[in-house]
């Protein structure tokens, strides 16, 4: 078997749910602190959601709620994160390029061109690809239908949804992508690793570089 025999995704339809399902336009309850600090305010916000609950739990109906995390295209991450945006804007200025709006039709192509000219962002995105940034996992693009840009799952944005609600959203979002093994397990492992990190009180000194 060759790597080409192991694609990242399959395309699925219907309301079945598996770990690794990617569901665009998924409504999640995003809670923030209220104005007076005493109350929680929850907004319903649409995200592209990646199902993290294990397939065996979903298949055996062991769970009433499904855990998902939010996924954003790398283009959106670069445009919306203040640190990356500032770096990209400086690279764009150096190279006489302009920063696109996040919803511009050619945003992907223009941001890719800017990233190509910015070593610092390339190094950081490579670090995410290699799994060196615990809060994030990179998801490969999909050139077929439905198409998907190179994207980043954020384990800092984790939500719980009732299973029937998510199944209905999955049905509405069909056809949609589902991560295949071993990429599904790769992301699941990254999720587990993020929440099981340990800060050593007496860390081993690093070699100076």
């Amino acid at each position: 078997m060759t790597p080409a025999d192991w694609p990242w995704y399959e395309v699925v339809e219907g309301d079945s749910l598996d770990q690794g399902d990617i569901i665009p336009g998924c409504l999640v309850l995003h809670a923030v602190e209220g104005e007076n600090g005493a109350a929680a305010v929850a907004d319903l916000r649409p995200v592209t959601a990646l199902v993290l609950t294990q397939t065996c739990d979903l298949a055996q109906s062991k769970v009433e709620s499904v855990i998902v995390c939010a996924v954003w295209p790398v283009t959106t991450v670069v445009l919306q994160d203040p640190v990356l945006r500032k770096e990209a804007a400086e690279a764009a200025q150096r190279n006489k390029l302009s920063m696109p709006a996040v919803d511009a039709a050619d945003a992907d192509a223009r941001i890719t061109e800017i990233i190509d000219r910015c070593k610092a962002i390339k190094k950081e995105l490579n670090a995410i690809i290699k799994g060196e940034r615990p809060p994030f996992a990179m998801l490969e693009k999909h050139d077929g239908v439905p198409s998907a840009a190179l994207s980043m799952a954020s384990f800092q944005h984790v939500y719980s949804l009732p299973r029937p609600v998510l199944a209905r959203m999955a049905q509405k979002a069909s056809p949609r992508l589902r991560l295949l093994p071993p990429y599904r397990e790769h992301v699941s492992q990254a999720f587990g690793r993020y929440f099981s990190r340990i800060g050593l009180l007496q860390d081993i000194p690093r070699y100076p570089t």
């Binding site: 070593k119 950081e124 809060p135």
Partner: peptide, 23 residues
């Protein structure tokens, strides 16, 4: 009641480490 806009990406402080050593 407030219409919710798509959730905007936001990393935590220090999540992205930009290395400018090679430049």
């Amino acid at each position: 009641v407030r219409i919710g806009a798509p959730l905007q990406f936001q990393a935590g402080p220090g999540d992205f480490i930009l290395d400018h050593d090679d430049e």
